[in-house]
Amino acid sequence: MDAIARIKQLGMPRRNDELWTFFPVAKIPAPEFPDACASEEDFSGETDFAALLPVAQNARTMVQNIADGSEEMALLKCNNDFGRTVLNIGKNAKASFEILDNKVEHQISAERFDLHVGEGADVEIFFANPANDLPLKFRHFSIEQSANSTVRFSSIERGNGISRVSLDCHLRGNGARFEIRTLNVLGGSSESHHRLHIYHDVPETTSIQFSRNLLDGSSRASYDGSVIVGNGCTKAFSSQLVNTILLSEDSSVSVKPVLKIYHDDVECTHGNTVGELDADQMFYLVSRGIPAEKAKKMLISSFARELFYPLPDSPAKRRLLQVLG
Protein backbone atom coordinates (compact mmCIF):
# COMPACT_ATOMS: atom_id res chain seq x y z
CA MET A 1 0.00 0.00 0.00
CA ASP A 2 1.52 3.37 -1.01
CA ALA A 3 1.65 6.43 1.27
CA ILE A 4 -1.35 8.20 -0.28
CA ALA A 5 -3.54 5.13 -0.03
CA ARG A 6 -2.44 4.59 3.58
CA ILE A 7 -3.28 8.18 4.54
CA LYS A 8 -6.70 7.81 2.96
CA GLN A 9 -7.19 4.58 4.87
CA LEU A 10 -6.13 6.11 8.20
CA GLY A 11 -8.00 9.36 7.73
CA MET A 12 -6.96 12.67 9.25
CA PRO A 13 -5.44 12.65 12.76
CA ARG A 14 -7.97 12.76 15.58
CA ARG A 15 -7.58 13.60 19.27
CA ASN A 16 -8.72 10.12 20.24
CA ASP A 17 -5.78 8.67 18.31
CA GLU A 18 -3.11 8.17 20.99
CA LEU A 19 -0.39 9.36 18.59
CA TRP A 20 -2.08 12.77 18.49
CA THR A 21 -3.39 13.13 22.05
CA PHE A 22 -1.93 16.57 22.73
CA PHE A 23 -1.80 18.01 19.23
CA PRO A 24 -4.35 20.61 18.04
CA VAL A 25 -5.54 18.35 15.22
CA ALA A 26 -8.26 20.80 14.14
CA LYS A 27 -5.49 23.05 12.83
CA ILE A 28 -4.26 20.45 10.32
CA PRO A 29 -5.64 21.33 6.87
CA ALA A 30 -6.68 18.49 4.59
CA PRO A 31 -3.58 17.96 2.44
CA GLU A 32 -3.61 17.92 -1.34
CA PHE A 33 -1.90 14.98 -3.04
CA PRO A 34 -0.75 14.28 -6.58
CA ASP A 35 -2.92 11.89 -8.56
CA ALA A 36 -0.59 8.98 -7.88
CA CYS A 37 2.18 8.26 -5.42
CA ALA A 38 5.51 7.86 -7.21
CA SER A 39 6.98 5.77 -4.41
CA GLU A 40 5.95 2.15 -4.54
CA GLU A 41 7.23 1.47 -1.05
CA ASP A 42 4.79 -0.40 1.13
CA PHE A 43 3.55 1.74 4.04
CA SER A 44 0.75 -0.50 5.20
CA GLY A 45 2.39 -0.83 8.64
CA GLU A 46 2.86 2.91 9.18
CA THR A 47 0.41 4.48 11.60
CA ASP A 48 1.61 8.07 11.92
CA PHE A 49 0.13 10.55 9.46
CA ALA A 50 3.24 12.74 9.77
CA ALA A 51 5.50 9.85 8.69
CA LEU A 52 3.45 9.30 5.56
CA LEU A 53 2.86 12.89 4.54
CA PRO A 54 6.34 13.73 3.15
CA VAL A 55 6.27 10.63 0.98
CA ALA A 56 2.76 11.37 -0.21
CA GLN A 57 3.57 15.01 -0.95
CA ASN A 58 6.97 14.48 -2.54
CA ALA A 59 7.95 11.91 -5.05
CA ARG A 60 11.69 12.23 -4.50
CA THR A 61 13.97 10.99 -1.79
CA MET A 62 17.55 12.00 -1.18
CA VAL A 63 19.72 9.02 -0.29
CA GLN A 64 23.08 9.47 1.37
CA ASN A 65 25.39 6.52 1.97
CA ILE A 66 28.20 6.80 4.48
CA ALA A 67 30.86 4.16 3.84
CA ASP A 68 32.06 1.70 6.45
CA GLY A 69 34.62 3.23 8.79
CA SER A 70 34.44 6.71 7.28
CA GLU A 71 33.87 10.06 8.99
CA GLU A 72 31.26 12.42 7.61
CA MET A 73 29.84 15.81 8.50
CA ALA A 74 26.84 16.94 6.49
CA LEU A 75 24.14 19.57 6.35
CA LEU A 76 20.69 18.30 5.51
CA LYS A 77 18.11 20.56 3.98
CA CYS A 78 14.70 19.48 2.78
CA ASN A 79 12.74 21.38 0.17
CA ASN A 80 9.77 20.90 -2.08
CA ASP A 81 11.65 18.46 -4.27
CA PHE A 82 13.24 16.40 -1.53
CA GLY A 83 10.93 15.98 1.43
CA ARG A 84 12.55 12.78 2.52
CA THR A 85 16.12 11.91 3.37
CA VAL A 86 17.46 8.39 3.77
CA LEU A 87 20.80 7.98 5.52
CA ASN A 88 22.59 4.66 5.32
CA ILE A 89 25.47 4.73 7.75
CA GLY A 90 28.08 2.00 7.36
CA LYS A 91 29.77 -0.12 9.98
CA ASN A 92 31.96 1.79 12.45
CA ALA A 93 31.32 5.03 10.57
CA LYS A 94 31.23 8.31 12.42
CA ALA A 95 28.74 10.88 11.18
CA SER A 96 27.35 14.25 12.22
CA PHE A 97 24.23 15.65 10.51
CA GLU A 98 22.77 19.08 11.06
CA ILE A 99 19.28 19.57 9.71
CA LEU A 100 18.85 23.10 8.46
CA ASP A 101 15.57 24.91 8.51
CA ASN A 102 13.48 23.73 5.62
CA LYS A 103 12.09 25.45 2.59
CA VAL A 104 9.08 23.22 2.20
CA GLU A 105 6.22 25.40 1.09
CA HIS A 106 3.25 23.12 1.27
CA GLN A 107 0.42 24.00 3.63
CA ILE A 108 2.07 21.65 6.03
CA SER A 109 5.83 21.59 6.10
CA ALA A 110 6.50 17.87 6.39
CA GLU A 111 9.85 16.10 6.38
CA ARG A 112 10.92 12.54 6.93
CA PHE A 113 14.32 11.15 7.81
CA ASP A 114 15.19 7.46 7.72
CA LEU A 115 18.42 6.40 9.42
CA HIS A 116 19.84 2.92 9.01
CA VAL A 117 22.77 2.79 11.38
CA GLY A 118 25.39 0.09 10.90
CA GLU A 119 27.18 -1.94 13.53
CA GLY A 120 29.47 0.11 15.75
CA ALA A 121 28.58 3.39 14.03
CA ASP A 122 28.47 6.65 15.97
CA VAL A 123 25.93 9.17 14.68
CA GLU A 124 24.71 12.54 15.83
CA ILE A 125 21.79 14.32 14.25
CA PHE A 126 20.69 17.73 15.41
CA PHE A 127 18.86 20.91 14.59
CA ALA A 128 18.27 24.31 16.13
CA ASN A 129 15.27 25.78 14.43
CA PRO A 130 15.42 29.54 14.23
CA ALA A 131 12.33 31.50 15.12
CA ASN A 132 10.19 31.45 11.99
CA ASP A 133 6.61 31.82 10.93
CA LEU A 134 5.97 28.38 9.50
CA PRO A 135 2.45 27.74 10.68
CA LEU A 136 2.64 23.95 10.82
CA LYS A 137 5.75 21.81 10.73
CA PHE A 138 6.13 18.04 10.99
CA ARG A 139 9.40 16.17 11.20
CA HIS A 140 9.41 12.41 11.36
CA PHE A 141 12.41 10.22 12.13
CA SER A 142 12.59 6.51 11.60
CA ILE A 143 15.77 5.03 13.08
CA GLU A 144 17.08 1.48 13.02
CA GLN A 145 20.24 0.72 14.94
CA SER A 146 22.55 -2.27 14.66
CA ALA A 147 24.72 -3.74 17.41
CA ASN A 148 26.99 -1.38 19.40
CA SER A 149 25.85 1.65 17.45
CA THR A 150 25.15 5.00 19.08
CA VAL A 151 22.75 7.71 17.94
CA ARG A 152 22.57 11.08 19.67
CA PHE A 153 19.61 13.20 18.65
CA SER A 154 19.58 16.80 19.88
CA SER A 155 17.27 19.66 19.05
CA ILE A 156 16.16 23.16 19.94
CA GLU A 157 12.67 24.29 18.97
CA ARG A 158 11.99 28.02 19.15
CA GLY A 159 9.63 28.65 16.27
CA ASN A 160 6.50 30.78 16.22
CA GLY A 161 4.19 28.18 14.76
CA ILE A 162 3.17 24.68 15.68
CA SER A 163 5.74 21.94 15.32
CA ARG A 164 5.63 18.21 15.88
CA VAL A 165 8.55 15.80 15.97
CA SER A 166 7.68 12.12 15.77
CA LEU A 167 10.36 9.51 16.17
CA ASP A 168 10.40 5.73 16.01
CA CYS A 169 13.65 4.08 17.01
CA HIS A 170 14.36 0.37 16.89
CA LEU A 171 17.38 -0.86 18.83
CA ARG A 172 17.97 -4.06 16.90
CA GLY A 173 21.51 -5.01 17.94
CA ASN A 174 23.10 -5.77 21.33
CA GLY A 175 24.85 -2.75 22.80
CA ALA A 176 22.89 -0.24 20.73
CA ARG A 177 22.39 3.10 22.44
CA PHE A 178 19.99 5.93 21.62
CA GLU A 179 20.06 9.35 23.30
CA ILE A 180 17.69 12.23 22.70
CA ARG A 181 17.85 15.75 24.10
CA THR A 182 15.13 18.17 23.14
CA LEU A 183 14.79 21.77 24.23
CA ASN A 184 11.71 23.89 23.62
CA VAL A 185 12.10 27.65 24.06
CA LEU A 186 8.65 28.92 23.28
CA GLY A 187 6.69 32.12 23.60
CA GLY A 188 3.53 33.69 22.22
CA SER A 189 1.05 31.05 21.09
CA SER A 190 3.63 28.67 19.66
CA GLU A 191 3.47 24.93 20.27
CA SER A 192 5.96 22.09 20.14
CA HIS A 193 4.97 18.45 20.41
CA HIS A 194 7.15 15.36 20.61
CA ARG A 195 5.92 11.82 20.10
CA LEU A 196 8.44 8.97 20.51
CA HIS A 197 8.36 5.22 20.35
CA ILE A 198 11.62 3.55 21.33
CA TYR A 199 11.76 -0.20 20.87
CA HIS A 200 14.32 -2.29 22.76
CA ASP A 201 14.15 -5.26 20.40
CA VAL A 202 17.16 -7.25 21.69
CA PRO A 203 19.03 -7.62 25.04
CA GLU A 204 21.52 -5.10 26.43
CA THR A 205 20.29 -1.93 24.75
CA THR A 206 20.08 1.59 26.16
CA SER A 207 17.83 4.57 25.57
CA ILE A 208 18.15 7.94 27.28
CA GLN A 209 15.57 10.71 26.91
CA PHE A 210 15.99 14.23 28.25
CA SER A 211 13.56 16.99 27.44
CA ARG A 212 13.49 20.53 28.76
CA ASN A 213 10.90 23.24 28.23
CA LEU A 214 11.04 26.98 28.80
CA LEU A 215 7.51 28.17 28.15
CA ASP A 216 6.35 31.76 28.09
CA GLY A 217 3.20 33.53 26.87
CA SER A 218 0.45 31.05 26.08
CA SER A 219 2.81 28.52 24.51
CA ARG A 220 2.27 24.78 24.85
CA ALA A 221 4.56 21.80 24.75
CA SER A 222 3.96 18.10 25.01
CA TYR A 223 6.17 15.05 25.36
CA ASP A 224 4.61 11.68 24.64
CA GLY A 225 7.38 9.14 25.06
CA SER A 226 6.89 5.39 24.89
CA VAL A 227 9.52 2.77 25.63
CA ILE A 228 8.78 -0.79 24.58
CA VAL A 229 11.05 -3.51 25.94
CA GLY A 230 10.46 -6.77 24.16
CA ASN A 231 10.23 -10.25 25.64
CA GLY A 232 13.68 -11.68 26.39
CA CYS A 233 15.37 -8.28 26.14
CA THR A 234 17.34 -8.65 29.32
CA LYS A 235 19.55 -5.84 30.68
CA ALA A 236 17.70 -3.16 28.79
CA PHE A 237 18.21 0.26 30.32
CA SER A 238 15.91 3.18 29.69
CA SER A 239 15.45 6.55 31.35
CA GLN A 240 13.23 9.49 30.58
CA LEU A 241 13.30 12.88 32.28
CA VAL A 242 11.26 15.94 31.36
CA ASN A 243 11.90 19.26 33.13
CA THR A 244 9.74 22.28 32.51
CA ILE A 245 9.90 25.86 33.68
CA LEU A 246 6.69 27.79 33.17
CA LEU A 247 7.55 31.45 32.77
CA SER A 248 3.94 32.61 32.53
CA GLU A 249 0.56 31.67 33.94
CA ASP A 250 -0.91 30.81 30.54
CA SER A 251 1.80 28.44 29.31
CA SER A 252 1.31 24.71 29.74
CA VAL A 253 2.99 21.35 29.29
CA SER A 254 1.66 17.82 28.95
CA VAL A 255 3.83 14.79 29.56
CA LYS A 256 2.89 11.18 28.95
CA PRO A 257 5.52 8.56 29.79
CA VAL A 258 4.59 5.05 28.65
CA LEU A 259 6.61 1.98 29.58
CA LYS A 260 5.61 -1.33 28.04
CA ILE A 261 7.91 -3.94 29.54
CA TYR A 262 7.66 -7.57 28.59
CA HIS A 263 10.74 -8.84 30.46
CA ASP A 264 11.79 -8.79 34.13
CA ASP A 265 15.51 -8.13 34.19
CA VAL A 266 15.47 -4.53 32.94
CA GLU A 267 15.86 -1.05 34.39
CA CYS A 268 13.44 1.62 33.19
CA THR A 269 12.77 4.96 34.86
CA HIS A 270 10.86 8.12 34.11
CA GLY A 271 10.46 11.48 35.80
CA ASN A 272 8.81 14.80 35.22
CA THR A 273 9.17 18.15 36.95
CA VAL A 274 7.22 21.35 36.36
CA GLY A 275 7.88 24.58 38.16
CA GLU A 276 8.91 28.17 38.07
CA LEU A 277 12.43 29.57 38.30
CA ASP A 278 14.11 28.37 41.48
CA ALA A 279 13.50 31.02 44.14
CA ASP A 280 16.65 30.13 46.10
CA GLN A 281 18.82 30.43 42.99
CA MET A 282 17.24 33.81 42.17
CA PHE A 283 17.88 35.05 45.70
CA TYR A 284 21.47 33.86 45.57
CA LEU A 285 22.21 35.74 42.35
CA VAL A 286 20.51 38.99 43.34
CA SER A 287 22.12 38.83 46.79
CA ARG A 288 25.42 39.06 44.93
CA GLY A 289 24.30 42.34 43.35
CA ILE A 290 23.03 41.01 40.02
CA PRO A 291 19.79 42.79 39.02
CA ALA A 292 16.72 40.55 38.99
CA GLU A 293 16.15 40.71 35.22
CA LYS A 294 19.74 39.69 34.51
CA ALA A 295 19.57 36.96 37.14
CA LYS A 296 16.42 35.59 35.52
CA LYS A 297 18.13 35.49 32.13
CA MET A 298 21.14 33.71 33.65
CA LEU A 299 18.95 31.03 35.19
CA ILE A 300 16.94 30.52 32.00
CA SER A 301 20.12 30.26 29.98
CA SER A 302 21.74 27.84 32.41
CA PHE A 303 18.63 25.62 32.46
CA ALA A 304 18.78 25.42 28.67
CA ARG A 305 22.53 25.03 28.26
CA GLU A 306 22.85 22.39 30.95
CA LEU A 307 20.83 19.99 28.79
CA PHE A 308 23.62 19.80 26.22
CA TYR A 309 26.66 19.79 28.52
CA PRO A 310 26.80 15.97 28.69
CA LEU A 311 27.25 15.73 24.91
CA PRO A 312 30.78 14.86 23.80
CA ASP A 313 32.73 17.70 22.24
CA SER A 314 31.25 17.63 18.74
CA PRO A 315 29.69 19.83 16.05
CA ALA A 316 26.29 19.29 17.69
CA LYS A 317 27.41 20.48 21.10
CA ARG A 318 29.25 23.49 19.71
CA ARG A 319 26.36 24.53 17.48
CA LEU A 320 23.61 24.11 20.05
CA LEU A 321 25.51 25.97 22.77
CA GLN A 322 26.38 28.69 20.27
CA VAL A 323 22.69 29.10 19.43
CA LEU A 324 21.90 29.46 23.14
CA GLY A 325 24.51 32.22 23.41
Binding site: D280, A292, L299, R305
Partner: peptide, 24 residues
Protein backbone atom coordinates in the same frame (compact mmCIF):
# COMPACT_ATOMS: atom_id res chain seq x y z
CA UNK B 1 16.23 48.85 48.86
CA UNK B 2 16.09 46.12 46.22
CA UNK B 3 18.11 43.04 47.17
CA UNK B 4 20.75 43.67 44.52
CA UNK B 5 21.12 47.26 45.69
CA UNK B 6 21.67 46.11 49.27
CA UNK B 7 24.50 43.92 48.00
CA UNK B 8 25.95 46.62 45.80
CA UNK B 9 25.82 49.08 48.71
CA UNK B 10 28.30 46.86 50.52
CA UNK B 11 26.38 44.07 52.28
CA UNK B 12 27.43 40.46 51.77
CA UNK B 13 25.83 37.40 53.28
CA UNK B 14 27.04 33.84 53.15
CA UNK B 15 24.33 31.36 54.01
CA UNK B 16 24.78 28.12 55.91
CA UNK B 17 23.98 26.03 52.82
CA UNK B 18 25.16 27.90 49.71
CA UNK B 19 22.82 27.36 46.76
CA UNK B 20 23.95 25.29 43.79
CA UNK B 21 23.37 26.79 40.36
CA UNK B 22 24.32 24.24 37.70
CA UNK B 23 24.96 25.71 34.29
CA UNK B 24 26.05 29.15 35.53
Amino acid sequence: MEICDRANSGLFISTQYPTEIPGV
